[in-house]
Amino acid sequence: MHYLTFDLSEDDAGTLTIEALASTPAAQHAAVMAEVRRILEWARARFPDTHGPLDEGMDWDDDLQVQVEDGGWHSVALTLAASARFAEAFREAFPGALGEAD
């Protein structure tokens, strides 16, 4: 990953959230979206039958927000609600993304 930066958090209920963010000029927006697609394609392939609300027993859910800001900058926020097993598999698939050393 070259454009997205990641943050992992946990709420009081134990729900893990992986947030991937990028803000780039328009010329780099396609590359950012390619990184988003890579993550979502991995998630769909690795956890094909457990996409949906975590409170219904699923492993992951997603929310993608894209905004064009003043000056042509594009902001992208991909939020993944994740089970512990999804987060662990994410760490393995994308080493270093969540702050661990590559």
Rank of each mutant, 00 (worst) to 15 (best):
P95S: 03
E69G: 08
A81E: 11
A93S: 10
P48V: 08
F86Q: 04
G71Y: 06
A84N: 12
H51R: 10
A87P: 01
G57E: 05
S75W: 13
A89S: 07
A45Y: 12
V68E: 15
E19L: 06
T5H: 06
L78Y: 01
A93D: 06
E92P: 04
W42T: 08
V68I: 14
L54P: 02
E56T: 04
P53F: 09
L16E: 13
H74G: 07
S23Y: 00
W73E: 12
V66W: 09
D102I: 12
E19M: 07
W42M: 10
R44Q: 14
D63G: 11
L8M: 10
E19T: 13
D63V: 06
D61M: 01
L80K: 00
V66C: 15
S83P: 06
P48K: 11
T79W: 00
P25H: 06
G57V: 01
G96K: 08
R85G: 11
L80D: 00
V32L: 00
L64C: 05
A30H: 09
A84Q: 13
S9V: 03
E10L: 12
H74E: 08
A31Y: 08
G14P: 06
A26C: 03
R44L: 12
G57K: 00
P48C: 09
I39L: 15
E41P: 05
F6W: 11
G96N: 06
S23G: 08
G14V: 07
A89G: 03
F47R: 06
S9E: 12
D11W: 01
D61I: 02
D12M: 07
A101F: 11
G71D: 06
L21T: 14
D70E: 14
D7R: 12
G96E: 10
G71M: 08
G14H: 05
G96R: 05
A97T: 10
D102Y: 02
D55I: 09
Y3S: 05
P25G: 11
T15E: 10
E56W: 05
A31G: 13
T17Y: 07
A97Y: 14
G72R: 04
R85N: 13
H51W: 05
V32P: 00
A87S: 13
A31T: 08
L64R: 04
W42E: 07
F94T: 04
S75L: 12
P48I: 04
A30Y: 04
S75I: 02
A30I: 13
I39Q: 01
E92G: 10
H29T: 10
W73F: 15
F94E: 00
F47Q: 05
G57Q: 04
L8H: 13
S9A: 14
A101P: 09
A13Q: 11
D49E: 15
D63K: 06
I18N: 04
D61A: 10
M33W: 01
F6V: 02
V76C: 02
A30T: 15
R44K: 15
P53G: 08
R46T: 15
D59M: 06
P48S: 09
M58C: 10
A20R: 01
A87Q: 10
A31R: 15
A45G: 14
S9W: 03
E92N: 08
A77P: 01
A20Y: 02
T50A: 09
D12V: 13
E10R: 14
H2W: 08
D49M: 07
D59L: 08
L54D: 07
L21M: 13
S83N: 01
A31F: 11
Q67H: 13
M1W: 03
S9H: 00
E41Y: 12
M33P: 02
A45R: 15
P48G: 14
